[in-house]
């Protein structure tokens, strides 16, 4: 803990990132309770109201909905899906990567080729195709699809991390002790490779936010009226001249969250890998 605080002290960008990230987490957890508008509430007397007028801090959109409320509520959906996505893709990726690397031979070839096939398709295209076929973008389907798209990268990182430790003496010792494969992989090796894996999870979190926002922007994200930030940008694109705030603030929200997570990820990388 002391080391982490020491690192933080010397890294003002990381402090900034963590502060922004905590701000968004706070907004997602408690923001809706503090708002005077619901994210779907339509103030038809004040459509496209400029920021600050009629009690709308960041103005309203074409349907008279409060932009601030929609951004705050939107932070819930994007953080939830991004967190779930990075966790699911990491867990599945670790399972696949460890299994492939540990057993090697045909198992390794099979998993590697399968991951290669998935990686050959750009994650955004893969997600769009699957979502297009499914037709319905719920929290669950979005989480699963983005997780599938991100799993190969995590699996490769996990496999690489395992291979670097596979020949270690403590692994041989565990084998001689007669430990099961599962114990060797996840009790012996995993704690010793956790650094790069945690870095991968935090980086994946940032990519997930970008991916979810992109899918929303492309119209295959969450269904309206869920205030998906990417969808808010595309929905209001037509009125960017008349009501630039309807595009500007959701864009800023996406950018600030991605930057915050990236700064945090940089920090984790520094602490977990480089300094080690």
């Amino acid at each position: 803990m002391k080391t982490i605080l020491l690192h933080l002290k010397n890294n003002p960008l990381a402090i900034l990132g963590i502060m922004i990230l905590f701000l968004w987490i706070f907004a997602a957890l408690f923001g809706p309770a503090l708002l005077s508008y619901n994210y779907t509430e339509m103030d038809m007397e004040h459509q496209m109201t400029t920021p600050g007028e009629y009690g709308h801090l960041l103005g309203t959109d074409a349907l008279g909905r409060d932009v601030f409320a929609r951004i705050i509520y939107g932070s819930r959906s994007i953080l939830t899906v991004a967190l779930m996505t990075s966790l699911v893709s990491s867990i599945v990726g670790i399972l696949i990567g460890f299994t492939a690397g540990y057993f090697g031979s045909l198992v390794d070839t099979f998993f590697l080729r399968a991951m290669d096939i998935l990686m050959a398709i750009p994650p955004l295209v893969l997600s769009m195709v699957v979502l297009g076929i499914l037709g319905d973008s719920s929290f669950l389907s979005l989480t699963l699809i983005v997780s599938i798209a991100f799993t190969p990268a995590t699996a490769r990182v996990a496999r690489g991390a395992l291979l670097s430790c596979k020949g270690s003496e403590y692994v041989d010792a565990a084998r001689i002790r007669g430990e099961s494969h599962f114990i060797i992989m996840f009790v012996e090796i995993l704690p010793n490779t956790i650094g790069p894996i945690i870095v991968e999870i935090t980086a994946r979190f940032a990519y997930s936010i970008m991916m979810i926002a992109s899918l929303g922007f492309l119209g295959v994200g969450l269904q309206p009226p869920t205030p998906d930030w990417g969808m808010m940008v595309i929905e209001n694109k037509s009125i960017i001249r008349a009501a630039s705030w309807t595009v500007l603030y959701p864009s800023l929200a996406i950018a600030s969250l991605v930057i915050a997570v990236s700064l945090f990820s940089d920090f984790v990388s520094k602490v977990m890998i480089h300094e080690k």
């Binding site: 595009v247 500007l248 864009s251 800023l252 950018a255 600030s256 991605v258 930057i259 990236s262 940089d266």
Partner: peptide
């Protein structure tokens, strides 16, 4: 990160 930081300022300005 640097790219994203630049984007944070450029995108709103362009908008």
């Amino acid at each position: 990160t640097i790219f994203m930081m630049l984007g944070l300022f450029i995108i709103p300005t362009l908008s």
